[in-house]
Design a protein around this nucleic acid. Structure first.
Length: 157
DNA sequence: GCCAACGTTGGC
DNA sequence: GCCAACGTTGGC
């Protein structure tokens, strides 16, 4: 069976890690996710080759800043065992890690951020998880329809 | 910086 | 297992 192309949206505060950082690094561990739903998506659903909208939160302007691609299977977030890390989790055991992550690689930086209000103003994107009230998940699914519409809006095929 | 919405923790 | 208190997220 042919593998179906999957799409996601991942949020990051550019002060912590921006699309420019990813462009420089080429590839990064998506560390520090401490939310079970987001973890479950990374652990159970993400596949190498999945396409990712790289979203900048808590900044100006807020919105989609670039495109990335999942480039590893899920594995334990090493920071959860590092006492000095702010992502340290004393309740996580080496033999039973609580937090998983994937690696993500740089694909493209948008010429301009696609701002959240513009996304909200597009009726075709009204069902996007991102624009739902109270939606705070930092890793969330995007449908192929939504992906295509976003690509159209940013002038990519 | 504010605050609404949500998730997690812990007492009972 | 309930739920109040607390912490975090994230838009504005």
């Amino acid at each position: 069976m042919a593998k179906k192309q999957q799409y996601w949206l991942m949020k990051s505060e550019p002060g912590t890690y921006s699309i420019d950082d990813l462009k420089r690094d080429k590839k990064t561990m998506w560390e520090g996710v401490r939310n079970y739903q987001a973890r479950n998506i990374m652990r159970d659903e993400m596949k190498v080759g999945d396409q990712v909208l790289f979203y900048h939160s808590s900044t100006d302007p807020v919105g989609v800043a670039g495109i990335a691609e999942v480039c590893s299977e899920a594995y334990p977030d090493p920071h959860q065992f590092d006492k000095k890390s702010k992502y340290y989790d004393p309740k996580s055991k080496k033999e039973d890690p609580r937090w998983m992550l994937v690696d993500v690689k740089f694909v493209a930086k948008l010429d301009e951020v696609l701002p959240l209000p513009v996304i909200k103003a597009n009726p075709k994107l009204a069902d996007m998880k991102l624009v739902q009230k109270g939606m705070r998940l930092s890793v969330q699914p995007v449908t192929s329809k939504e992906w295509k519409e976003v690509m159209k809006m940013v002038g990519r095929k």
